[in-house]
Simulated scan of single mutants.
Amino acid sequence: MTQEIWQSRPADLYGRRTHDRLFNALWGAITVFGGMAALSRWTPSRVAPVSRTIAAVITKREMVTSDVVALTLADPDGGLLPSWTPGGHIDVQLPSGRRRQYSLCGVPGRRTEYRIAVRRLDDGGGGSVEMHESYAEGDTLLFEGPRNAFYLGTGENEALFVIGGIGVTPMLPMLREAAQRGIDWRAVYAGRSRADMPLLDEVLAVDPDRVTVWADDEHGRFAGTEELLAGAGPQTAVYVCGPSAMLEAVRVTRDEHADAPLHYERFSPPPVVDGEPFEVELARSGRVLEIPADRSALDVMLDADPTTAYSCRQGFCGTCKVTVVSGDVDRRGRTAEGDEEMLVCVSRANGRRIVIDA
């Protein structure tokens, strides 16, 4: 090897190749050290894993609607937070042990501060209520990320953003980036009333001529796909984020165009389709959980233990992946699962019972 490197060095003016003394010294040291390591069966110690958890201080708490709170986060020492892109989110670790996913809705790419907005759902899983009641200005908030599974495409020339309620949080930075890129974009923002639409003033501030606001109380009905997708041709990139009913209506309509680009993110898990009841046995405790046909294994596991790890609830992030001890898995997620793995947020059992390492 040394001879090959030596031969590859350029010749000097007299046709001779000059040795690099520093290189030779280093190469010799590596050779000796490697030989000693082999003789002593020495194994280098592994690098300690770096914690992904980040502590931020809440610098501002603002009620942007009657049921939506916006929290601004910053590094407690005044440093920069990790870089992020529009559509990105963080996984917040709540004091109760729950983990919840919230999109970043501040100025695209800004690292001196993050902003998230949370709608309170009193009949939800408890996370939104805890976000509203547990945090005040000056408190510390722990999170992991950011991550992004909802990017604004790099090759988009024409885009339509369909926004429903709290679905505005990932969309607002996308609108700002689309405007910066010079994309020919439009947005339809729908909600029960203008007062119930969080960050509506900021959406309109991007470019009011490109935004259509649909308030149900002004029209006496919900917006249909004709209003939501008005003017969207087969080549228009459509981005949608909002309630499941809105998302499904847009998805079905866009399916009429086989090649129409459609990008979406859910804020709630997709409905269980063609589900069959089954049992999940938790190998560590021996406890058996009954999973009904219309609920996911994760839903029932969260009932039993609210600290069960999860994030997207849609089968693409892999946070809820568990090891399968026995049983056959009906795999339904977008994240790859091995032969002995299962995404409990979407996948189900092929058979009556499945045993997982939990």
Rank of each mutant, 00 (worst) to 15 (best):
P234G: 10
P234D: 09
P234Q: 09
P234S: 12
Q235S: 15
T236L: 04
T236S: 05
T236E: 05
A237Y: 09
A237E: 10
A237G: 15
V238L: 07
V238P: 03
V238S: 01
Y239K: 01
Y239N: 01
Y239E: 02
V240I: 10
V240P: 02
V240H: 04
V240C: 15
V240Y: 04
V240N: 05
V240A: 15
V240R: 06
V240S: 11
C241Y: 00
C241R: 02
C241I: 01
G242N: 03
G242Q: 02
P243L: 08
P243C: 04
P243K: 02
P243I: 06
P243W: 00
S244H: 14
S244Q: 15
S244A: 13
A245N: 07
A245I: 10
A245Q: 12
A245T: 07
A245S: 11
M246F: 06
M246H: 02
M246K: 00
M246E: 00
L247G: 00
L247K: 01
L247E: 10
L247D: 04
L247P: 03
L247A: 08
E248H: 13
E248C: 06
A249K: 03
A249M: 06
A249E: 01
A249Y: 04
A249I: 06
V250H: 03
V250R: 01
V250Q: 01
R251Y: 11
R251V: 09
R251T: 14
V252F: 12
V252D: 14
V252I: 15
V252P: 08
T253A: 15
T253E: 13
T253D: 05
T253S: 15
T253N: 11
T253Y: 03
T253G: 07
R254S: 04
R254F: 05
R254V: 07
D255Q: 14
D255F: 13
D255L: 13
D255R: 15
E256T: 11
E256S: 13
E256K: 11
H257I: 08
H257P: 07
A258L: 14
A258N: 11
A258G: 09
D259S: 14
D259Q: 15
D259G: 11
D259V: 13
D259C: 12
D259I: 12
A260S: 13
A260E: 06
P261V: 06
P261Y: 00
P261D: 08
L262G: 05
L262S: 05
L262D: 05
L262N: 09
L262F: 15
L262P: 04
L262Q: 03
H263V: 10
H263K: 11
H263R: 12
Y264E: 08
Y264Q: 09
Y264H: 12
Y264D: 07
